[in-house]
């Protein structure tokens, strides 16, 4: 389990990095946290002839909030505030576990999701952008990216382009990123104060990939769902935003908080819709598609219920 020989460069600027990536003959790979790339290189599934280590590139470790994004395909959902979180390519998973690293409901949701990723030493090295670029179907960040309308900024020698997360993921470990492009920045619209969030993950042991994971964000007004976002991990060959399930929720009355949703409850219905219509699980050992659909339905229901409870606990204006 040793990597094949390769050349190594450690550029100091994005410009140098994309120039290094620009030579198509070298099958270059970007090294950020390295927690999946080096594993794949050791398995000789990744056999680059050039490794571009971006860890010394200045400015990529920034985690910032701005009133508006700095360009690109901005999309502001109904529960966006116009504020945008910008995550640089070197922001490690662990950064999102620190209290207050990201404000408001988005910060709470990211903290919940980050805690589910591998374990602390991996989270201290691995990056969000690296996970998105690796595009494992079970990745927590990938599910969040599609659910929350993230925009991925890809830099190349001839300029940058922004790709919406929904267009980015094409299959297992397959994305719209070209080999010559560097994923430098990920933008997430902030979630409006008062949004309730939850993250539910089901896996076999502390170390295994998720069999299913669900991210949920809901906004309620007077007990009625105003907006909902649902992301599914490992429910298809790529991350899924459960749009049909989301739609089934808009305008639904969710009843008193805390009650266990009965079969006909909007959350249970949304779970069923997500599982039957949004998800498209592929077979894997110990979790055939029937089982994974079932788990998706349960987790969507549970995540929505938790998200609603989270929203009830944090009425608008006191969410800080």
């Amino acid at each position: 389990m040793k990597p094949v020989p390769f050349d190594y460069v450690a550029p100091r600027t994005v410009r140098q990095a994309v120039e290094a990536l620009g030579d198509p003959s070298r099958e270059a790979r970007v090294l950020a946290g390295g927690q999946s790339l080096i594993m794949e290189m050791r398995l000789r599934r990744a056999t680059p002839r050039l490794v571009v280590d971006i860890n010394r590139v200045g400015g990529l470790g920034r985690l910032t909030v701005s009133a508006q994004g700095t360009g690109g395909a901005q999309e502001t959902g109904a529960h966006g505030t116009g504020g945008v979180l910008e995550v640089g390519a070197l922001v490690r998973h662990a950064a999102f576990e620190r209290p207050g690293a990201v404000p408001g409901p988005l910060g709470r949701l990211f903290a919940l999701a980050a805690a589910e990723i591998a374990h602390p030493p991996i989270r201290a090295r691995g990056t969000m952008a690296g996970s998105l670029a690796w595009a494992h179907p079970a990745s927590e960040w990938c599910a969040l990216a599609v659910a929350l309308d993230a925009v991925l900024v890809l830099d190349a020698v001839d300029g940058a382009r922004a790709v919406a997360a929904r267009d980015f993921f094409l299959g297992p470990h397959l994305t719209a990123r070209e080999a010559r492009e560097l994923l430098t920045l990920v933008r997430f619209p902030l979630l409006a104060d008062g949004t309730g969030v939850a993250f539910a993950e089901h896996r076999r042991t502390c170390f295994s990939f998720a069999q299913v994971a669900v991210a949920a964000a809901v906004t309620l007004r007077d007990g009625v769902v105003e907006d909902a976002r649902i992301g599914l991990a490992n429910c298809a060959d790529r991350p899924v935003r459960a749009r049909l399930a989301e739609r089934s929720l808009i305008g639904a009355e969710i009843g008193p908080p805390g009650a266990r949703p009965a079969a006909g409850h909007p959350f249970a219905r949304a779970g069923a819709v997500a599982a039957e219509r949004d998800a498209g699980p592929v077979p894997e050992p110990y979790a055939d598609p029937d089982y994974r659909r079932h788990v998706a339905a349960v987790l969507v229901r549970r995540a929505l219920r938790e998200a609603a409870a989270d929203a009830e606990r944090r009425p608008e204006g006191v969410d800080r």
């Binding site: 190594y8 450690a10 090294l31 390295g34 927690q35 080096i38 594993m39 050791r42 490794v51 280590d53 860890n55 030493p121 991996i122 201290a124 090295r125």
Partner: peptide, 10 residues
Amino acid sequence: VRSCLMLAVQ
């Protein structure tokens, strides 16, 4: 860190 997932040159 996992020293099996880092290159010495890093």
